[in-house]
Simulated assay, not measured.
Amino acid sequence: MIGNSSQSKILKHTARSDAEKARICAANNADLYQAVFRAHGLPDQRTSAFWSSDAIAPPYYSNMTTLDRNATEEQLVEIGRLTDRLGGRPGLKDGFSRLDLVNKGFRLLFSASWIWAEPHRISAPAPQDWVRIRDGAALQRWEHSWKQSGSPTDAKVFTLALLFDPDIHIYGRCAGGGFDAGCIVNRSPEAVGISNIFSLAGTPQVFRDAVSLATVAFSPELPLVGYDRDEALDAMTKLGFKPVGQLRIWLSDEDGL
């Protein structure tokens, strides 16, 4: 039975508008970006309007994520500054689908949905055969599998420093001395995020396992959040997540990715 304190917290989360939930999703995602960049020793800056970095981003990461749907003028100024600073057009995550950057030399890579699950609405035991990655050798094997699943790059994306961040948990499912599935869970003040879900076998069970791990990793009073599209979005909605807003990923129109 859920106590009065827990009930009041659930009601508080439920009463939030989709726009507020999208803001919390974007903030949680920016926290993960910040952790990854700092684990690489890369500089970053953050305001109420955006998170950004002047450094060359690790593969599959943007140089900027927006944090306020109404601060478009400030965000456009930062996009111009980053473009000048980096000598080209940086990758950008428009967290609220508010920026039209076609005329500024960008092309839309894809759109996706922020997703949200209320606390206590998803209940599942910790899955078997999954472990938290705790050392460099295991992280190397985990990243090798992650790249095989559809994120090919020769660069090192996840560094050892991430394992010492108390707000980041990296999980893998053990298989033959390595890992055949994985995910990352990150904690923010207002939510727990799930990202980088992969399965070499392509089984939908991996989504349920990732949600179970996120449920037990940090405070059960916090909502679970993330962003997905296509089949992954369908899988997460079947598990109890609801779309709460749209985001867009922009790349330079000159970028061949």
Rank of each mutant, 00 (worst) to 15 (best):
P189S: 13
G88R: 15
A35P: 14
L233D: 10
A15I: 04
A161W: 00
A175L: 08
S62I: 12
S195W: 03
D18R: 12
A55L: 11
W146E: 05
F37V: 14
F158H: 03
S8Y: 07
L82S: 02
S151Q: 13
I170Y: 04
I115A: 05
R132P: 00
G178L: 07
V36W: 10
K93R: 15
A138L: 09
S8G: 10
N63Y: 15
I168H: 11
K156T: 10
A27Y: 10
E143S: 01
R81F: 14
S53A: 13
L222R: 07
G150T: 09
P125E: 11
K9I: 07
V192A: 07
A30S: 15
Y171D: 05
I168C: 00
S195A: 10
L101I: 04
G240A: 11
A191R: 08
A235S: 08
D253C: 03
E190P: 03
M1L: 04
W146H: 10
N70Q: 03
L200P: 01
A232C: 06
Q7H: 10
Y227N: 12
R81E: 08
T65Q: 13
P43L: 05
H40F: 14
I194N: 06
R107K: 11
G182C: 02
E74A: 13
A35K: 15
G88M: 08
R107V: 02
Q140N: 04
T203H: 06
D44K: 06
F241C: 15
D234P: 02
I115T: 05
L163Q: 01
W250N: 03
S252C: 14
G176V: 03
V131Y: 02
L32Y: 14
V225D: 04
E118W: 03
P243K: 04
S188L: 12
V77I: 14
D31N: 12
W142M: 09
G193Y: 00
C25S: 12
P152G: 00
F218V: 06
D18S: 13
L108G: 01
N28R: 01
A22F: 14
A155Y: 09
P223S: 13
T215P: 01
I168N: 05
M1P: 10
T66R: 12
D68H: 09
